[in-house]
Design a protein around this nucleic acid. Sequence first.
DNA 1: ATAAATGATACTATATTAGTATTATTAAGG
DNA 2: CCTTAATAATACTAATATAGTATCATTTAT
Lengths: 131, 131
Amino acid sequence: MNFISRDTDYAVRALMFMAKGEKGEIITVDEIVRREKLPERFLRRILQKLAKNDILVSYKGKDGGFSLSKDADRIRITDIINIFQGHVDFAKCLLKGRKCPNTNSCSFRKKLKDIGAYVNKELGKITIGSL
Amino acid sequence: MNFISRDTDYAVRALMFMAKGEKGEIITVDEIVRREKLPERFLRRILQKLAKNDILVSYKGKDGGFSLSKDADRIRITDIINIFQGHVDFAKCLLKGRKCPNTNSCSFRKKLKDIGAYVNKELGKITIGSL
DNA sequence: ATAAATGATACTATATTAGTATTATTAAGG
DNA sequence: CCTTAATAATACTAATATAGTATCATTTAT
């Protein structure tokens, strides 16, 4: 079981690559594909999604491409994970269609919740710039 | 994105229920289904898997059922997660078919690894008995 | 106008998750 | 030994998530 999904992973690689360039530099999908050897169409969609979520700015048309929308130190890993994997829920009750019998005294979920809070806190400290 | 899968969740519920009984008590799948309202055939397979992995002892034939194979305090949540979800890998490199360019200097995976180690340590502290 | 880029959206393939169904095996008890 | 009540093994299925691919539209510099 992997904690990080492929699109999150690819997004981080692309962002790390972009962060190496000058601030505000416009980079095309093809450049990233050449350097990082990621599947072109898939990566294209990933970058589009990053643009929609204000991580990247996209420039259409000739000489277009993508640039980081903010300083790499302000792009947190949790942002990327949330975009591609949704909120990481450590303590969700998985009973279907009915209320959990021990709903408000579930010590298991309480402990999972604590662990989840720690993980999110630590992941929040990691930024593209810090990598 | 859920960290815990449904079979892990159901297994923990079943084990917690069984741990309430006397030590070594034999309990049938049907009893657990009645009390915890879990899908019978699915739960049956889950308990079989727990038996195969030495968490439960199974007794076939009339008056059969399952009992905990050891003290509930010695059944850790990580054991259950490993059985149903496999090893939880926080830092796996997801590049396909080719070597990662920055294989031995990947600061991202290094940080993920640290977080994963913490999570596994904390999950290892949680036992069925402690819940 | 053309070329070179992204945008939107639909499609597909594979894997994982969450089950269900069927038949076999085992063991207690009359 | 036969019946009954339990698990064992295994195959099957349905739904969902993951990992892509394909197509056509739109934009913009020259």
